[in-house]
Computed example of a mutant assay.
Amino acid sequence: MISVENLSKTFSNHTIFKNLNLKIATGDILAIIGPSGSGKSTLLRCLNLLEFPETGKVVIGDQHYEAGHISRQEIVKIRQESTMVFQQFNLFRQKTAWQNVAESLVVVKHVNKQQAKQRALAELAKVGLSEYANFYPGQLSGGQKQRVAIARSLATDSKILLLDEPTSALDSELVGEVLATLRQVVADHPDYTVVLVSHELEFVKQVATKVVFFEDGQILETGTAEEVLEHPQHERTQQFLSRFTQQQLAHS
C-alpha cells in the first residue's frame, strides 16, 4: 500500500532524513514514535506531498512519484490517495462543522451540496457531534474540533489515513475523547491503512500492528507494538521509552 525508497529531505541545508526506506502493507496500522524534531511529521507530509523531498520514490495506494520529477497532475493524484488529520485541526473558521466536512466533497469530488451535507452529517454522527453540526470552530472545544477533522477525513473515502500527532494540541482532559474516536475509526475500518505519529504510547500499544522508532531521520527499530514498546532491542529505543515513562509518571 505504501512504499518509501531512498527518500531524502532537507530544510535550509539541515538533513531531516536521508535514503529512508519503509514499507507499509495494506491494512497495517503503523505508529511512528520518537523524540520531537526527529523528522516524523516531515515524513508524513512527504507521503502526500505537503512537503517535497529532494530524492527518492514513494508509492502510495495506486499512485507513485519520483522526487524531482513531479507534475501538478501527479500532486493532485497523490493527495487523492490519502487523507490527513493534522495537529492543529486546520478547519475553516468561517464555516460550520458540517460545512468543513462537506468542503472537500464539493470542491474536490464535485458532489452536489445537498448530498455532501448529508454525508457530512452522517460522518459527524459517527464521531458523536450531530448536535454540533451548525457550530463554528470558535464555538467548539479542541477535542470537538479534532473530531470534526476526523469526520472530514472519513468523508473522503480515502483508504489511507495519515494522523500527525492528533492529540498534541489538546488539553489533557480532551485527549481521551479523541483517542476513543480514533479507536472506533480503526475498529470500523479494518481495510484502512493508517500511519500514526503519536506520543500517546498506551494508545499506540492498543491499536498499532507495527511500530517504528524514529530518531534523527533514521529508523532504529521496527516490530510489533509489543516487541518495540515492551521488549525494545535498540539502546536508544530503551532510553527513549524509559525517559518517556518517567515523564508520564511525573505528570500523572
Score class of each variant (00 low, 15 high):
Q73P: 12
G39R: 01
N13A: 06
Q63H: 08
Q87R: 01
L174I: 04
D191I: 00
E200Y: 03
G61F: 02
S242W: 10
A102H: 03
K205V: 06
A180E: 15
L229H: 06
V107P: 07
I29H: 06
V178G: 07
V228R: 00
L162D: 00
A122D: 14
K145Q: 15
V228Y: 00
L121A: 05
S12W: 08
E226M: 10
E123R: 04
H64C: 09
V211I: 02
G56R: 03
Q146Y: 01
A225K: 05
T245A: 15
A180W: 04
F203R: 02
Y136I: 07
L229T: 03
L7C: 00
N100D: 06
T156V: 09
F244M: 07
T209M: 02
E51H: 12
L241C: 11
V58L: 01
Y132E: 11
V175S: 13
Q88D: 14
K57A: 11
T193A: 02
V194I: 15
N112I: 07
E131H: 09
L22S: 02
A155S: 02
K57W: 13
T96Y: 03
G138D: 11
D171C: 04
E131M: 08
S41E: 05
A169P: 05
S3C: 11
Q99W: 08
E226R: 08
R147C: 04
G27T: 05
G128I: 04
S172V: 13
E202L: 09
L44S: 04
L49D: 10
L44R: 08
A133F: 05
S41A: 02
R79N: 13
L7T: 02
Q233M: 09
A67Y: 14
E54D: 09
T237G: 07
I219F: 10
E51T: 04
P232Q: 04
E235T: 13
P137C: 10
D171Q: 04
F244W: 10
